[in-house]
Structures are given as C-alpha cells and as structure tokens.
Amino acid sequence: MEKSDAPRVVVVTGVSRFLGAQIAAQIAADPRVERVIGLDRTDPPGEYQDLLRNVELRKSDLTRHSGSTLTKLRAEAVVHLAVVSSPDATKGGRAAMKEQNVIGTMHLIAACQQTESLKRLVVRSSTAAYGASFRDPAVFTEETEARDVPRGGYARDILDIEGYVRGFRRRRPDVTATVLRFAPFAGPAAETVLLKYFAQRVVPTVLGRDPRLQFVHVDDALEVLRRSVVEDHPGTFNVAGPGVITLAQAIRRAGRISLPVLEPLLQAATQMGGVSLDQVDLFVHGRVVDTTRLVREFGFTPRSTAQAFEDFIKSHQEGALVTPSRVESFLDMIEAVRRGRA
C-alpha cells in the first residue's frame, strides 16, 4: 500500500558505503523513480560499480557543501546516510567523524531547506540517541529522551543530527521528514565495528554485566529505508529486530570466548582504540527499543534480533572456537560415557 506517489528525483548521501550503495541501487530499480543521484566524498569501491550502474555518482564533500546542488537537481527526496558510527583511524579519526556527522548534516539540512522541490527527507539515526544511564527504563519508545548527554562520540553526534532535523521540521512543515533510529546492524554482509568485535576469537566484556542487545538485519533496514523513500512515513521510528539476546548469549551462539574485564580497564582501552566509549556504554547498560510504531506505520516487521544475529554467525564461522555444535558433541560424549556405565 503506497500512501503517496514516489519521488522522481532521489539524492542519496554516503553512496560509497554499504548501506548507501544498496539503497541507491534499490531505488534506482523502481520504475517510478526517474533519477537517483549518489553523493559521497570518495568514489565507491570497485565492487559496487555494477550495483551502482543506474545511479549518477557525484563526488561531493558534505562538510563543504555549497547548497545549490540539491536545488539544481530539483531533488524531491533526500536520503541522508553519510553518518559514520565509529572513527576510522586511516580517515582522520574521531575529529573527521564528527566533522562528517555534525557539520555534514548541518550543511545538508541547510541545503534541503532551500530546495523548493523537496518532498521527503530520510535521515539515518541510531538507537544510541537514547544514551546510557542506570535510571533508564528497560525498553525505549520513540518518546524516551536521553537522561544525560552521552559520553560516547557517536551518541553525541546522533543527538546533534536529530536536533538539526527537529529544526528542519519546524521550518519546512511541508516536507515529510523520517528519522530512522537503527539498532546495530547484523547480517552476512554487514561489516560494522560491533560485528567485527564479535568476529574475534576472544571477545572482551564488562565484568558483572550481561547487557541486552538488539540487532536489525541489514536487509530489513534496507526495506524500511526503501519504504521511507517511496511511501509517506513522517516521524521518528525505532528500527530493530524484536526480542533481545544478551551479550553472553551472543558470544556463546557465535562460538566465541568471552573475556570479562573490569569496567575501568575496558574504559582505559578506549584510549588505545579497538573499542569506543559508545561500545563500553552499550556493554554496561545494553539497549532495547520498542518497535510497535514501526510495525504499525510501515506494516512491516523486521526479522527478530536472534535471527539477524544468526545470519551473521553463519557467515563468520572461521574464528569460532566453542561452537554450539562442538559443545553438543562434547556433551554427547559425556552422555554416552554415562549411559555406558549405567
């Protein structure tokens, strides 16, 4: 059921990265959409060339955006995915990440404001928007506000980004603005820092904490993004797989070994990289969101957190040591010995 006609010209930022490339290609395949323009500061890697053959690629640094591109293109929908969830030491680290997330979004939103033809704005956000506190409810709905300014860089960027969208909504009430608060991605192809963490043989955790985690399957995230572009879904939505798995559960299912570390030590390790404050907070507090609004408004239920994570495990068997099947066969052996004796 399409609530409104699809936009003719769609601009996707962050097209050189996985999510941007995938969604740009999906939208370009929609016959109702005439043009899809992909923006990014770097050229997409070779592997996306075939995928992006129907997407017009433009090199554009959002942090130095002139503002006239969107107007010239007569953009009707903008999908803002140029949001980085973790610093990349080879690309300027945290400073560059903040520059891209905050300043980049600011410029883009300013440009959107001036684009008369714009009908829809879709912005990638994160469940990190809820921050991390001991006084938080167990499950966050879209109305829950962060109790304190989070200490994690990504979470702070997300709050800034959502702040700009709020301002935009006030100034351009005629444009449908959709903010999607994604849970961490999982799936066979997803390559997030969090998933790379789970792909290690030994996974450091916080001693005395077994946080509740949620994931969203990348394919489901893409479907929600696609629907936000071609249908009308104003508002802010949590996008996560229903249900939870705890960190210990995730590690056991993945066949990894957990290494509990005192919280201050793990925090000290953030200075050396490899783990961010965002992640330490996630590993202390966990994060679970309510997806009732998404299911009701989009008429779409993402596959469960457990299924999404299972899909990730299937494609990452190589680092696994204590896999469920090895545990099974070991216990079967004990069982057999016991039976034999009886």
Partner: peptide, 18 residues
C-alpha cells in the same frame, strides 16, 4: 547436562527486560 547444553550454546530465551 541438558541445562549445561542450553547454557553453553546460548540456546535459551531472555525477555525484553533481561
């Protein structure tokens, strides 16, 4: 042993509240 099997393989359910 059945309990141990569930725990070691992560094959148990936890609700939204943990």
């Amino acid at each position: 042993l059945a309990f141990l099997r569930r725990r070691l393989t992560g094959d148990y359910e936890v609700d939204d509240f943990g």
